[in-house]
Design a protein around this nucleic acid. Structure first.
Lengths: 336, 336
DNA sequence: TTCCCTTCTTGGAACGTTCCAACTAGTGTC
DNA sequence: GACACTAGTTGGAACGTTCCAAGAAGGGAA
């Protein structure tokens, strides 16, 4: 904590050159003589000089920062996505401003405003609860890439998602292949992702001639929502031998409810989730699930966002990645 | 995406006043006439004006941003800490720049450099793997608050931690109170937190006259580390009836190993963890643990950091918060 | 010697704010 | 009618960079 933070002028004075040359040298221009380069570098090092990003951003008219809005930090899939996001952003010299949205819409707005004031060059949204309208409005000011959704359109909006319907079908077909027919579905509530996963469930059931066995219970993507939904399921449809649950977190709640009702997973009751969150594959849980390539999705999102930043007004991009069945310990053939 | 981002000059022109007055009005000065205030506000709204944080930061000589370094996003306790951090930072009008450190020391340096270039006014570290020396060096440039550790000193370093030794003693005393005596400990590897928790274990065992039963296996704070350590434990000390594990994540690994070895938790083998990560309290896991007030720790850290930023050169602060025994389903009296 | 070309270097303007000293109009006061 | 206030308002300087047009120094070619 020296008296004053050294600026480019201090470095220039110490190296005996002009501030302009310091600026050039520090950014690796090839028009600087070897001698000056050396003098400048050692002066900078000696003073502990750090370029001021705000000044650079102002002069440059670009911030080299992207904003990330994560609506719910407590769903661990976000951590994995963020891993990918941060990696690619860092590799490209971009800073990442992460903001977690509150449930409160007013505070959400002010958090978004803060991001935009920072002149982020683009935004990554990981937010299934944000309305399409809000997103379109934001995209009016800044390019946006949305991860895990593809239901928003706009001139500056790209999406990275997996094919939720296809993933859901894979899950259900797997249960059917094990011999199940009384397969229930616990949804994730009122949002596009849930609707798609439910659609995939229904389609797969119908395709297998199991139309009569379709049984859907409303959940909400949370552990306790899954628990509640499963209890409801066991009351209303006790013959069910398996459940396809809208996401991993609520699948864990379903497993707990199954255990409470005296059902052993997987011998009495099979559970398959969706997402592929890292914790679900811990040995203790060992959840069978449809695994999204989360880290990869984070990577792709940043790559796409940076592409749009550097070349605006290109056609919209909607990347769909493949999700895979992750075999683990919570599914087995029905016992009867 | 209009042609040009409106600046304070555009607003001034539109409202028919000077840029200085716009600046005053937008920051809520009381020396602006009601009439001007109104004209300025509506001009700003109409143009979709957003203040440029970089310019402000430059003129102001402060960035209103704090940096957060999280070394491992995959340990879910960080999500909870971050919740508290973001909340208090936001309430005080501060932006949060979150960076996840790579294992790679070189990249870590460049990530830190990027934070410092952003002129963050202070840093929050959640990083048990960072060397004390590195931290002291950083704190030379900017105030630092460290969460979950208290082993670093420096003029500008404050710490928020829980009393790991005390927490560990609580855990062990609880097991003893249930009737256990053959209590093993799985450590978290070579770092201060682990050493403190091990010390607490040893002290509690000795205090209860169980010196002969002390049995320590090296772990590493991860799920798989816990799994491996537990298998080692069951081989070297099969009579153990309980384990105090250095953190929740590895406690889950221990539980998996117990199950694999045919031990039922908690009837055959009791497990108690440390941290209180949200996922461990899911019904399916229901882990007994020592719960740190993680969100609160995040809050306190920011509060302390902001205090030091506004009033530097005050004596160092080391806050110790209390951790509590969280009763759940993985501990029971020994069966024999 | 003169002139042109490179190669390196430079000071000034600009970026969008905030701060400051100073200015203008009223409004009272005597 | 002069004076001092007060309430609003203003332009210019500053913040630490980058960019740009232009300058200095040295080397060849004529």
């Amino acid at each position: 904590m020296a008296g004053h933070k050294p600026t480019i002028h201090d470095v220039a004075a110490k190296a005996g050159v002009s501030k302009s040359l310091v600026s050039l040298a520090l950014r690796g221009s090839d028009k600087v003589s070897a001698e000056s380069q050396l003098a400048i570098e050692s002066a900078a090092a000696e003073l502990g000089y750090r370029p001021n990003a705000a000044a650079r951003s102002l002069a440059d008219r670009r911030s080299r920062a992207i904003g990330v809005l994560v609506l719910d930090f407590n769903n661990p899939i976000f951590a994995q996505i963020l891993d990918g996001v941060q990696k690619v952003a860092g590799e490209n010299g971009y800073n990442t401003l992460i903001v977690t949205g509150s449930a409160d819409t007013v505070r959400q707005e002010s958090e978004l405003a803060r991001l935009l004031e920072f002149q982020v060059e683009g935004l990554i949204l990981i937010a299934h609860r944000l309305s399409a309208e809000t997103i379109t409005r934001i995209s009016d000011e800044r390019p946006v890439t949305i991860i895990t959704r593809n239901d928003v359109t706009g001139a500056n909006v790209d999406t990275i998602s997996n094919d939720d319907q296809a993933g859901a079908r894979i899950a259900v077909e797997y249960l059917i292949s094990l011999g199940h027919s009384r397969i229930a579905h616990v949804t994730g509530g009122d949002n596009q992702i849930s609707r798609d996963r439910e659609k995939g469930y229904r389609d797969a059931m119908i395709a297998a001639g199991l139309h009569d066995h379709i049984h859907v219970i409303e959940g909400d993507f949370t552990d306790s929502g899954g628990y509640r939904a499963a209890n409801e399921l066991f009351a209303s449809y006790p013959e069910a031998t398996a459940a396809f649950v809208a996401n991993d977190l609520s699948a864990l709640g379903v497993m707990a409810a199954a255990a409470d009702s005296g059902r052993n997973v997987p011998t009495d009751f099979s559970v398959i989730g969706y997402d592929g969150m890292a914790l679900a594959s811990l040995r203790t849980l060992n959840l069978t699930t449809i695994q999204q390539p989360l880290v990869e999705m984070g990577r792709l999102a940043v790559a796409q966002l940076l592409a749009r930043i550097s070349t605006p007004n290109t056609p919209n991009v909607s990347v769909q990645v493949d999700s895979q069945l992750h075999l683990a310990g919570t599914c087995a053939p029905p016992s009867k």
